[in-house]
């Protein structure tokens, strides 16, 4: 692969993007998993698809758009969807989880209509759904690099507030943490990372890359810091394995990435089962009204 790596630009783009995604998605996944928001990632990834479909539709009329990456429109839709979701969660305070199926329906409904209008049920769509290593452009790589730097910076700056809000939202707000704004910031970051991950993992599998490594890490971790470390290791391993097998076997990377992450989770759960005595009842915590 080394030779090809230096020969083909697309491979470099895919590889570097993958490294960044394998880092970002699991990190955000840590917060998403402990806050019980895993389903939000599904909703937002479908909204991203809607944005992409909208781009494809517009590109038929406005030809200049064919030269642009659909990533921008995907990101715009994902961010708009995330803000709408936050809004809905405050409307249905007693049934916050209702926001998820509402956004998901909007995403799929509009998405399918746009795709049909754009005559887009083709190979392109397949790549967006399941990921691809040949479609990442230099432009995508630059945008995703910017997202990586910005999101990582924000996570470091707001780490302590995010940790407190994840652990106990009510206590955090009593101690004067501006929970509302930080939640909005967080969901926007999630939207950006989901849209960025789409090229490599694919819309349908983004949420798995966010949640599976964190689900494994929570089994292994004593501290919150450790959970990041394990999530990143598992995330990177899955993504790199996925990209390499996609290259050699000519398959979609998304599927392999998710299968690797899933296998790791199953192995960890299996080992835990054997060590019953030492288990810390990780999965048993009660609902905290997400």
């Amino acid at each position: 692969m080394m030779n090809e790596f230096f020969t083909y630009e697309f491979l470099q783009n895919a590889f570097f993007t993958g490294i960044m995604i394998g880092f970002l998605a699991p990190i955000l996944g840590v917060f998403i998993v402990v806050r019980r928001l895993a389903l939000i990632t599904d909703a937002l990834s479908h909204v991203t698809l809607t944005g992409i479909a909208f781009h494809l539709l517009l590109a038929q009329t406005f030809t200049f758009m064919q030269l642009m990456s659909p990533l921008y429109m995907g990101m715009t839709f994902a961010v708009a969807g995330s803000l709408l979701m936050e809004k809905l969660r405050n409307v249905y305070t007693a049934f916050k989880e209702l926001a998820i199926p509402i956004i998901l329906s909007i995403g799929i409904g509009l998405g399918v209509v746009f795709i049909s209008l754009a005559d887009g049920f083709n190979n392109d769509l397949f790549n967006y759904l399941f990921g691809s290593i040949i479609t990442v452009t230099r432009e995508d790589l630059s945008v995703i690099s910017i997202v990586t730097v910005v999101v990582t910076g924000l996570l470091i700056l707001f780490y302590k507030e995010l940790l407190f809000l994840s652990f106990d939202e009510e206590q955090a707000s009593v101690s004067g943490i501006p929970g509302k704004w930080i939640n909005i910031l967080f969901i926007i970051m999630t939207a950006l990372v989901i849209a960025s991950s789409m090229r490599i993992v694919g819309i349908l599998l983004v949420s798995s890359l966010m949640t599976l490594p964190a689900a494994s890490a929570i089994q292994l971790s004593k501290s919150f810091k450790q959970m990041f470390l394990y999530s990143i290791i598992i995330g990177e391993f899955s993504v790199i394995t996925g990209i390499i097998s996609a290259f050699y076997l000519d398959i979609s990377p998304g599927g392999v990435i998710v299968l690797v992450a899933l296998s790791i989770l199953l192995i960890i759960l299996g080992c835990k089962k054997i060590h019953v005595g030492t288990s810390r009842k990780k999965m048993s915590y009660t609902d905290n009204n997400t």
């Binding site: 402990v34 940790l163 994840s166 652990f167 106990d168 009510e170 206590q171 890490a217 929570i218 971790s221 004593k222 501290s223 919150f224 450790q226 959970m227 810390r280 009842k281 990780k282 999965m283 048993s284 915590y285 009660t286 905290n288």
Partner: peptide, 12 residues
Amino acid sequence: KANTINTGFPAT
């Protein structure tokens, strides 16, 4: 709630 929530949370 302090004593019932999030006891499985990975925090020291």
